[in-house]
Simulated scan of single mutants.
Amino acid sequence: MTFNLTVSPDFAPDHISGWYFFNTWLQRKLGVGIHLELYDSFDAQREDIRAEKFDLIYANPYDASMLVREMGFQAVVKPASKSDETIIAVNAESPFHTVEDLISGCRVATTDDPDVHTMGMIMLESADLDKNNTEIKQHSSYVVVAKNLLNGDADAGFFLKDAYDELSELIRSKMRVLVSSQISVVHHSLLVGPRMAEHIPAIQTALLTMHDDEKGKGVLESMDIETWEPMDSEQTEFMIDLIDTLID
Rank of each mutant, 00 (worst) to 15 (best):
Lys174Cys: 10
Val145Gln: 05
Asn148Glu: 15
Gln182Glu: 15
Glu169Phe: 09
Ser233Thr: 13
Ser8Leu: 07
Lys29Met: 11
Thr245Gln: 14
Ala163Pro: 03
Asp40Leu: 05
His139Ile: 00
Val143Arg: 09
Phe159Gln: 06
Pro230His: 12
Asp40Thr: 08
Ile200Ala: 05
His15Lys: 12
Ser189Glu: 06
Asp248Gln: 14
His211Pro: 01
Asn23Trp: 00
Thr24Trp: 03
Tyr58Arg: 04
Val186Ile: 15
Arg107Thr: 11
Leu246Met: 15
Asp244Cys: 08
His211Phe: 07
Met223Thr: 12
Leu30Asp: 03
Lys217Trp: 02
Asp155Ile: 04
Gly216Val: 13
Ser184Gln: 14
Ile16Gln: 14
Leu242Ala: 11
Leu129Phe: 12
Glu169Ala: 15
Glu198Asp: 13
Asn148Ala: 04
Ala202Asn: 09
Ile225Gln: 08
Pro201Thr: 02
Leu242Arg: 05
Ile183Glu: 10
Asp130Gln: 03
Ala109Val: 10
Trp19Met: 04
Ile16Asp: 05
Pro201Lys: 01
Asp113Gln: 12
His188Trp: 04
Asn132Glu: 15
Tyr142Gln: 03
Met239Thr: 00
Ala64Tyr: 01
Ala75Glu: 13
Glu70Pro: 07
Thr205Phe: 10
Leu246Arg: 02
Glu85Gln: 15
Leu36Lys: 03
His188Thr: 06
Gln182Arg: 14
His187Gln: 14
Thr209Gly: 11
Glu125Asp: 11
Tyr39Gln: 06
Ala202Ile: 00
Ala80Ser: 15
Ala12His: 15
Glu93Met: 11
Arg46Leu: 13
Asp115His: 14
Asn132Gly: 12
Thr86Val: 11
Phe238Thr: 15
Gln204Pro: 00
Glu135Tyr: 13
Asp63Pro: 00
Leu102Glu: 10
Gln27Ile: 02
Phe158Lys: 03
Tyr142Met: 05
Ile16Ala: 10
Val32Phe: 00
Gln45Ile: 04
Lys161Glu: 14
Gly193Lys: 06
Ser65His: 07
Ser94Thr: 07
His139Lys: 11
Thr118Asp: 14
Lys53Leu: 08
Gly120Met: 11
Pro79Phe: 03
Val90Leu: 07
Leu167Asp: 10
Val185Ser: 14
Leu178Ala: 01
Phe238Leu: 12
Gly216Phe: 10
Pro13Leu: 04
Arg172Tyr: 01
Ile122Tyr: 05
Leu56Gly: 07
Ala51Ser: 09
Phe21His: 11
Asp212Trp: 02
Pro79Trp: 06
Lys137Thr: 14
